[in-house]
Design a binder for these strands. Structure first.
Lengths: 218, 218
DNA sequence: ATTTATTTTTAGATTAGTCTAAAAATTGTT
DNA sequence: AACAATTTTTAGACTAATCTAAAAATAAAT
């Protein structure tokens, strides 16, 4: 069993490894964890002693296979709880993050197994992020930013890049939600703004929006 | 906001106040918390500084009104989560305690409000203990031990005194569950054993059993 | 290739929560 | 009332997780 703090560090390293595949720097981790570099060094030493990460002084840190599985277990719990909060308790998708941050640390294999079943084995969380299975496998799909599509193309909304409450509320207000089909009717070459068809209506959206919406093209 | 440890102490004091209404001794608390008396003294000082308890050296401890409300909030969360685990996730009533011990510390007013609604505002947990409302009021009812009833009397099973897995499994095996009606057909004056009617069948139970089952007589 | 700037680590201090061992206060017994 | 037994508190130490300030290592720049 690992402490709350250890689990949060593992999660942060997991996410940062996508950006820094050769090793996550102490400063990057300090930034992500909103803490000081010296604290990060201390924690990395602990994680290293527990064989959760590979660490060489001044060379940054990477998860071990054991560390990766531990991080993914926490992420799995986080995303399942988010589905619970939205689907069962009626939370809006911009309200779930901080509660899920707490719930993800509850320790009970049976709890998460039964929750998964209760939710009917969801594959994605309310923001469209994939939920890993208990072995740590993520679903992969041809996920692209809406901004990358051309006039005439279409796809299903599967997630957001920016998950700030402001953006999520903008989406709600305009009827954009996960699972909705979007057709690109026009694309303005000057500012990349788009005219899209959604819910049977036409809607004008700027490049800021289309650059933060993930789409699955069949 | 209070720490996990502080909340657990408040809960323990709340429960012990029923047994020691004039003040909970340091040793009693140490026993309940499975810790040392010196640790208890330290914690009591912290709780006292935060106005959660009234404390005079060597005189034991009692909850302040603020402390009582805080303890009851935690108990409310514990019991609501137990209902969730049993009713929604299919846990047995002897499996829920340790998971609920973790879930009770999640901080979110909205979460507990929506969970209460989702569970349809339950009044008792799976062991029959009353769930306080958000203001800290418990339902009260004419709750008696089955052993106190006489031949010919009857009532509804509403809770257990001993909530050990062994006892709960015994009850399951014999079809005794919350909400079931029990009629006392015979009561043996020699050993207080009873012949009861339950689920349409007759069942012989010893005094050990009837002394640990709470019954609501209408 | 030195010097400068940046990043990272160490050293030492702090807080919450715990412990052991010993001292102090209270209670019980003759 | 005085001694013994019990309970409770204090004193001092430990761990996990953090911090600040300073030292050491690496990277960048002239």
């Amino acid at each position: 069993m690992f402490s709350l703090s250890e689990e949060n560090y593992l999660k942060a390293i997991f996410h940062l490894e996508r950006t820094y595949p050769t090793g996550v720097s102490t400063n990057a981790l300090a930034e992500e964890m909103s803490t000081k570099a010296s604290s990060v060094t201390d924690m990395i030493k602990r994680l290293s002693e527990k064989k959760l990460v590979a660490y060489k002084k001044y060379q940054g840190v990477m998860l071990s296979e054991f560390g990766r599985q531990t991080a993914v277990d926490v992420i799995r719990k986080h995303r399942l709880w988010e589905v619970f909060l939205v689907d069962k308790l009626g939370f809006a998708w911009d309200e779930v993050h901080e509660v899920a941050e707490q719930l993800e640390h509850i320790k009970s294999d049976k709890l998460i197994k039964e929750l998964d079943r209760f939710l009917d084995f969801p594959k994605r969380d309310p923001h469209g992020d994939p939920i890993p299975d208990s072995k740590g496998n993520f679903v992969t799909s041809n996920k692209v930013l809406l901004a990358e599509l051309k006039k005439g193309e279409s796809g299903i909304c599967i997630g957001v890049k920016d998950s700030s409450p402001e953006f999520l509320q903008y989406l709600d207000k305009n009827g954009i939600a996960l699972g909705k089909e979007i057709n690109i009717l026009e694309k303005e070459s000057f500012d990349q703004s788009m005219l899209i068809k959604l819910n049977g209506n036409e809607l004008k959206i700027s490049n800021v929006i289309s650059s933060n919406l993930y789409i699955k093209t069949s």
